[in-house]
Design a protein around this nucleic acid. Structure first.
Lengths: 229, 229
DNA sequence: CATCCGTTGATTGGATCCAATCTTACGCTA
DNA sequence: TAGCGTAAGATTGGATCCAATCAACGGATG
């Protein structure tokens, strides 16, 4: 049965939850596996193999792969199949350039309208991140923190785009954590952003955010430079 | 046969061209129809009806609808079908907020690396826009002009996102044209941006672009305010 | 008369089957 | 032996069929 050592063994458990459709289910599991790095870039995603693993037919798999392609998580070529998008220094720079454009805009729009409850939520997430040992969940918490600060921006599509780019960065976050260890400085930035947001000081919060993103992008660029040669 | 007066009568001709797959074909035709305003917001997109019109089965239609959903051009609800996304003042503001964030970043990255040939291309597009009477093609030319200026930015995904948002704005461009008539001032902005780009003056080009986008967003907001009450 | 509930029709989600395309391997030829 | 053409297998795209879900309507009941 166990085709020996398929890359898809890393798909992980079925992510307990209620799914409206099989397509949503397959998409969610695949997306989590890609973002958390369990399915590395370049992994071929055969429809039939995935269908068998998920216990569904090939059709929901096909639709899920299309959705992931739209999110730039897999590359599809007609009649040749889907492959997990490769990560690279160029792609990391690309993703961070997008975040660097979107997130300051979202933060500027959001800060004047942030409710105290939303700020408290952000503060709780910071504490949860201090206590989180697992890198996989750390990415989720990091996303949640950033989105909590942007949540009041209105502009649903801007927020959706921002969330998608933040998720894409999760694939690089593990490198960041590996390089800096757990005592990375991000939490200082997060606290500074939260403080500025509480004070209603949008320019300062934006400045911290931009430095935060630049630092992260720089760290990942150095990581690739040191590794890839 | 002719179910009398279906909204899908506006789908238009089959956009001569070679398509790798039926899905791509359906997606391209639907996308063009939505962007050019022939399929207004709220139009229900029944899979079977579309399949019959395109002479394919329901499956490529389903995949195309999924792709369009990812581009925020249609809304899909499980078991209830797809509807062309409604346009609104809020959505217009949202889209322009995204452009306002992305395009200055792309322009800043691109200008130092723009080749003379790319600048010449942009200049030609401006002339073509002067001569273009049809609003549908005007949107395409406008997109091409902007993307020509950003083309040297590198960062494929940033450019892809930017192009998608530019396309989304096409749905509002018709209002802009209707309000300002053909002697709209956009062309002055375009010429100023091109001149600044030629001079390598990124800050000035970005300033013109930002004013350009703000003016367009304002015009559309006023249009909705005057109409919707 | 209003409300609740079951039934019916329409529509989509999913499964299975067939066709088209790509990859690979083999054999032939120069 | 290198290169090319062809044939077999694998894999995806598309069509058709069935099942699940939703909306609407009508009747029973308080």
């Amino acid at each position: 049965m166990a085709d020996p050592a398929s890359p898809l063994d890393a798909l992980g458990p079925a992510l307990e939850g209620r799914w409206r459709t099989a397509t949503e289910f397959v998409e969610a599991v695949l997306k989590a596996a890609i973002l958390e790095g369990r399915l590395p870039g370049g992994t071929a995603l055969r429809q039939e193999e995935l269908a068998e693993r998920f216990g569904v037919s090939r059709m929901p798999v096909r639709e899920a792969l299309r959705q992931l392609e739209a999110q730039a998580l897999v590359d599809m070529v007609p009649h040749r199949g889907a492959v997990v998008t490769e990560i690279s220094a160029a792609d990391a720079a690309d993703t961070y350039a997008i975040r660097r454009a979107l997130e300051p805009a979202a933060l500027r729009l959001s800060i004047p309208r942030l409710a105290p409850a939303q700020l408290d939520t952000a503060a709780e997430i910071i504490l949860a991140m201090d206590a989180e040992p697992e890198p996989g969940r750390m990415g989720l918490l990091n996303r949640r923190f950033h989105m909590a600060l942007y949540a009041a921006a209105g502009h649903r599509r801007l927020l959706a785009l921002t969330a998608a780019q933040l998720a894409a960065c999760d694939r690089y976050l593990r490198f960041h954590l590996a390089a800096h260890g757990r005592e990375h400085l991000s939490q200082q930035d997060h606290r500074a952003m939260l403080a500025a947001a509480r004070a209603g000081d949008a320019p300062r919060a934006v400045a911290v955010l931009e430095a935060h993103l630049d630092r992260a992008a720089g760290a990942i660029a150095r990581f690739f430079a040191a590794r890839g040669g």
